[in-house]
Amino acid sequence: MATRLADRAGLLAWLFLLPSVLYIVALVAVPFALAIAFALSDVSAGDPSYDYVGGRNFERVFDDPVFWRSLGNTFVFTGISMVLIVVLGKVLANILVADFRGKWLVRFLVLLPWTTPVALSSISWLWLLDSIYSPIDWVLRFFGFLGPGENLYWLGQPGLAMTSVIAVHVWRLTPLAAVIMMAGLVAIPRDIEEQAMVDGAGYWRRMFEIKIPLVLPVAAVAALFGAVFTFTDMAVVRVLTRGGPNDATQVLASWAFYRGIEGGDVGQGAAIALFLFPLLLAAAIAILRVVRRIEVW
């Protein structure tokens, strides 16, 4: 008698996995293989014919000062954003797990930056950081921090432009970190905290010796998600500064786009974009390890 399909566990497992595998192959593996192939070719926006050129694109990339600036900026933006996202996410999570009237409305509002498409929210920030009409400048002027007619030119000064890009990343990713850490906070058994209170531990001691250590694996997940999203994002830079002023906010993703698509040199653009891979690989391994630790815990 033929075995029923429902009884063939191995086959069923593959059938259930197949959609995911196809999805990953089509949208991750194939584009990644194409990126490697393009990086070793002279493919341009106007000429898709493939000619192997070895490491020539990488040599040109290494000779390009904008690439090195973009690489440095990518790490600076990601590092600073990651720290701020974790710290502010933890603070926000503490607030959101507390009981107060209108908690659900506050949670909804806090989540909005994360749910808003990044292009739309970046355009809002573009207006907020406008050279002349910035409402932020208006408020600073109102309270006397800026003189009459004085502006900060948020996107026109290298330091302030970098700060602005980091601020937008932190603004949009902190809610995600907060939600992840909220899950960690509510999972802490209440008896542990109650026991500490009975033993006389104050708020800060409970925070640093109980809550933070227990939430740390979850915080790591939040940090790594923040890092991945910041490292790979080009929408914020493209909308706010287009990499300026004078390439001060150029990152790998945006420079790969400008060089590869706008400039027409797809091969070199692909070579630049491939430098995203090592860190993303490290981040993926780290996330998987942390998730495994959480499972064990």
């Binding site: 502006n151 026109g156 000064q157 300026g244």
Partner: peptide, 21 residues
């Protein structure tokens, strides 16, 4: 000029002229 010229997009100079800035 002022540092705003380093931050402009394609619409910025139009906006500045029309708004009297």
């Amino acid at each position: 000029m002022t540092p705003e010229v380093f931050s402009w997009n394609a619409a910025s100079n139009n906006q500045g002229l029309v708004s009297g800035k």
